[in-house]
Design a protein around this nucleic acid. Structure first.
Lengths: 225, 225
DNA sequence: AGAAAACTTAACTTTAGGTTAACCTTAGGT
DNA sequence: ACCTAAGGTTAACCTAAAGTTAAGTTTTCT
């Protein structure tokens, strides 16, 4: 089965976080939380969730501001963001969409509605947005066909290697930390040894050329053309 | 019962989507939605609906443009597309038909009319269809006659095997996940064991040659010439 | 209704892919 | 230049996913 979608909930009330966590985990989502906007940003950067639920009303950095900042981060450009608002605050919706929101959930939270909204949003966004094909430095990646072409030669990569390649090549030049990689490909609950990543990197280097995969010692790896 | 026809609604107003969804689901259709043309395209590619309702007026990529792009996709060549327009915009109909539309529904939406139009369109398209034959890598598929010819020899495939072949061959090279396959052939709700798919794949390999059906472990299957 | 064909399932085998352990190499700080 | 910790390498091992077969079920056809 496909990896569990990861949802980040940001709210200053622990009660609400608990409620959201309970309901979403029950549906099989991978949930992480943060108690304020700043922490939300941090967690988002680290966990790279598929969807973020943001409370609009928060002390210090409110939902709007957090949303705007999230949208600034390249790797979170396409994450689905929904706001949590009180029913009567609907005036804020316009501002919300402008800040980059995809949807709104109103308090008090009705569980069934919450779950179906989340489902709908994830379904809609799922394999969307990102292009299915890309070509970087003689390497073509076709996600639909799960196929990589190097200098015109087709190469069939195993799943994990393919996913790793897709991740690294999604932002050429950007360094992905081991933590980033583990979170994106294995999920943050799975525990695998450090050497596992190295081995997969090695396989990629073997198949696609050493020069494209750079090690930044003590930090992580990056893909370059 | 026959599989529920799947309808994709694309509109930038959530209200309209809700209205359409409510009315169509009530009639027993399987409804999916998208909030803009780009997402609509993605969903269409993924869900392969039988009919698409497109709002003409949408920001960014409008209905016309979306329609044109949908018609470019081989697996969606024959899908029925109807536009949603305001009553007075009928001038747009000429352009609409040129873009590849099959019909128009005018706003405000009258439920009874909507439903009967949809029914009529699906009925009409059902036994009709245009391109019912294809030939890929020595294998000819005639959807109308439910007939497959391999190297000049006719082979009579059972329904499920035939459907599976049609699905996989509709996009040669593209990997279909088990989920994809289940959704398209068995329907979203039906539950069948995982081994069922394998068995059908095995039969196809047996009859049409191993080499054409490739397994991508952990991902799915694909058809290749 | 009975037979045949199609479909699903269960139980088992096989295998590709993933992980790890043990060891080796190298970069970069001091 | 040395030392150390991070990363590289290899091959053996393990496991989840797919393949296989045959035995039920269900459907379809006569």
């Amino acid at each position: 089965m496909a990896k569990k979608p990861k949802i980040l909930c940001v709210d200053d009330e622990q009660d609400i976080l608990d409620l959201l966590t309970f309901n979403l985990e029950k549906e099989g989502y991978d949930v992480c939380t943060a108690l304020n906007g700043k922490k939300g940003l941090e967690v988002a950067k680290r966990e790279l969730p598929d969807l973020i639920i943001l409370d609009v009303m928060m002390p210090e950095m409110d939902g709007m501001e957090t949303c705007r900042e999230i949208r600034e981060i390249p790797s979170l450009q396409n994450v689905v963001i929904t706001f949590l608002t009180a029913r009567n605050e609907d005036y804020s919706q316009i501002a919300g969409f402008e800040a980059g929101a995809d949807d709104f959930i109103t308090k008090p939270i009705r569980q069934r509605l919450l779950v179906s909204k989340i489902k709908a949003l994830l379904r809609r966004s799922g394999p969307a947005e990102v292009k299915k094909e890309m070509s970087i430095g003689g390497i073509e990646i076709d996600r639909e066909k799960y196929l990589v072409t190097k200098d015109g030669v087709q190469i069939q990569l195993p799943k994990k290697e393919f996913e790793l390649l897709v991740l690294l090549s999604s932002a050429p030049g950007r360094v992905f930390t081991r933590e980033n990689i583990l979170n994106s490909i294995w999920g943050n609950d799975v525990i695998v040894g450090d050497r596992t990543i190295d081995v997969h990197i090695r396989k990629l280097r073997e198949k696609l050329g050493d020069e494209n995969f750079k090690t930044i010692k003590g930090v992580g790896y990056k893909f370059e053309a």
